[in-house]
Design a protein around this nucleic acid. Sequence first.
DNA 1: GCCAACGTTGGC
DNA 2: GCCAACGTTGGC
Length: 167
Amino acid sequence: MAQKSSRRKRQYWLFKSEADCYSIAHLAQETSQTTFWDGVRNYQARNMLRDDVQVGDRVFFYHSNSKPLAIVGTCEVVKAGYPDHTAFDKSEKHYDEKSDPENPTWFMVDIQLVQQFPEPVTRDTLKEQADLANMMVLQKGSRLSIQPVTEQEWKAVHKLAGVKDPK
DNA sequence: GCCAACGTTGGC
DNA sequence: GCCAACGTTGGC
């Protein structure tokens, strides 16, 4: 029986972003190709950012509400949940007057670009895959901006993207 | 631009 | 604690 608690297995996520607002191209231009994922104002998503998303986890970057709807690449989580300071800044779009810096309501993580897919894996393509029928982002009315992804889904999407060895 | 789905708010 | 009204998300 191993004494040392085994390291938590890497988990997979999908983060949505409106491409007009912040696309993977924006991320690619950041210093160190790293950004903080701010502005999430939904409790379910907040809970995942605060409690579940860990350093080393992998993330699908999904473009929502823009064309083409697609998974456009992947990222690595480089900093786990910490308070989203934009909630305290009146000049910010996602300012929340009810959020208290002493007891923050909203959280964010930092992610770093791993790779942009050569071609986006479009929503239409995803929908054609029988083995992805249960993928959360494809469900009707799926509004969560932070979603868990299974390892099978992670691999299947890489295959569709023409990436042989997911990083 | 439309509208269904969903989360939040607030009156009771 | 219920639930109608409202605002937002996001695919189509």
